[in-house]
Design a binder for these strands. Structure first.
Lengths: 269, 269
DNA sequence: CGCAAAATTGCGTGGCACGCAACCAGAGGT
DNA sequence: ACCTCTGGTTGCGTGCCACGCAATTTTGCG
């Protein structure tokens, strides 16, 4: 076989056959055990019923357990010996499964390494939803982004190295993009809800589009801050960089027409 | 060998050995490069003229020729028979070189497929620079983005399929991210110039950061528009989507504090 | 014209993604 | 509790790929 798409061309079926590929959905039990704050958030929603509803019981649990085990082992090994010095064989061994089983869960080792990050990225929507209703959208957005990056492991050096790895390795770039996409979508959904709840008065505006655009802008800005943070020669705190960058985003579009050449006075429109 | 990093661990040397890897100069992968500081460093060394003089030799021309040939062949074949039904062997054959030579120019076939797009992405800075000086920054930015996507082959169905491929295939995601990064950096540089030329009066603002943030926001917004365009069930024109999305970006940050719940008035600092 | 630098090529190796077909373990019916 | 059946695991095999190494050809320069 080539790489994907067994015979056809489109790549649709994917989850067919034998592997436990698509699993069931999004049960987040033990994967994000690093951040205690996240647990609080999850419990606030009352997702215990979700797991019960899934109720395929032991079978499903074991599946997610090994998935998490593989993902965690992949990240750990990659950090310990370097990305290029870890084989899928090693990861599988660390998770006590066959190398073949590894590929039943992840197509590439890079996907396994980034699985935890993707999981976490999907939670930023709830982080925004948890902001007090009295806050303005922008304020809540800034707070949510800061909280997302601070509750994560962005403080301890281990996670810092993990981020660095994702930003430097070409192979991880695609997976990192996937994480960012997840974050953007989750954020867009939460923004749309908040906009709707606040009752956007403007008549014909496309709420979905606006939310998506805003989420994209905020996410991209956060990435700029993260990139600057990790490139800073004297290591500095991430939070002020984030707040600074987000403030610049707001400012850059608030007064955009100030930029005209001094000689000409032609004020367009 | 593993994947990268032959023996060491850091991945620094990269362009050593035999292959014509580094080409002229700017195909470096630099993820952490935050703006123009790197350029300053390079110019501080002095021998930039050497490279320029060297670039016009017959040797360099042939190199770029075969590189373009490979890239073009890769894209064409991928479009014709589908991404998974083309081997590096096929691409090399189409470019009349050895399969081994292919890997002297590109590490993966996906990189070859996206090389043209990356090339083009770096030109958006000049597109912005070409806007009349009388235009406001925002107006020029919108016009530049629209022009960039319209002068490209984003109208003819062939390029549309190419874009679709880049957005759907997981393997191309990483390369697409690279293109977006290139576009963002090129745009940020041009924005910074335009800001400086207009004389940003605000005293202590970090021009580089603001330009970078703005470029990131605009680029991300353009991606939102492109994604919506290509997902539109009745095929529609890209231009209005782009303009609409960019207008939403501006609007979303102009009046962000309008969103407060009607019942509660508690303003949480 | 001849030499050195640089690019191309052939060959070989280690690794990976995944189809296929056995095998084995939960889940559900009687 | 027994049996079956659905579905996850594993071993094996295959095709493809990235790239080191070394020999060969091409190009630029004195």
């Amino acid at each position: 076989m080539r790489t994907r798409a067994p015979t056809g061309a489109t790549e649709a079926p994917e989850t067919a056959g034998l592997g436990p590929h698509a699993s069931t959905g999004l049960d987040v039990d033990r994967v994000a055990d690093v951040g205690a704050q996240a647990v609080t958030a999850v419990q606030a929603q009352g997702p215990a019923a979700l797991e019960v509803a899934h109720a395929h019981g032991l079978r499903e649990r074991k599946k997610q357990a090994t998935r998490g085990e593989l993902s965690r082992a992949a990240l750990r090994l990659a950090m310990e010996r370097g990305l290029d010095n870890v084989l899928v064989e090693d990861i599988a061994a660390a998770a006590d499964v066959s190398p073949r089983t590894f590929n039943n869960y992840f197509t590439t080792k890079y996907e396994a390494i980034c699985a935890l990050g993707a999981e976490r990225a999907s939670q930023i929507g709830d982080t925004l939803r948890r902001r007090p209703a009295g806050e303005g959208l922008w304020q809540a957005l800034t707070a949510a982004v800061v909280a997302h990056y601070e509750t994560g492991q962005f403080c301890d050096p281990a996670a810092m190295a993990s981020l660095k790895m994702m930003l430097t390795s070409p192979q991880l770039r695609g997976e990192h993009q996937r994480i960012v996409t997840t974050m953007r979508e989750a954020l867009a959904a939460a923004i749309a809800e908040r906009m709707a709840a606040a009752g956007v008065d403007s008549a014909g505006v496309d709420l979905g589009l606006r939310a998506e655009v805003l989420a994209a802008a905020v996410t991209a800005t956060a990435q700029v801050a993260v990139r600057r943070w990790f490139a800073a020669t004297p290591a500095t705190a991430l939070r002020p960089l984030l707040e600074d960058a987000l403030a610049h985003l707001q400012a850059a579009l608030r007064a955009p027409e100030t930029t005209v050449p001094p000689t000409t006075d032609g004020s367009a429109t």
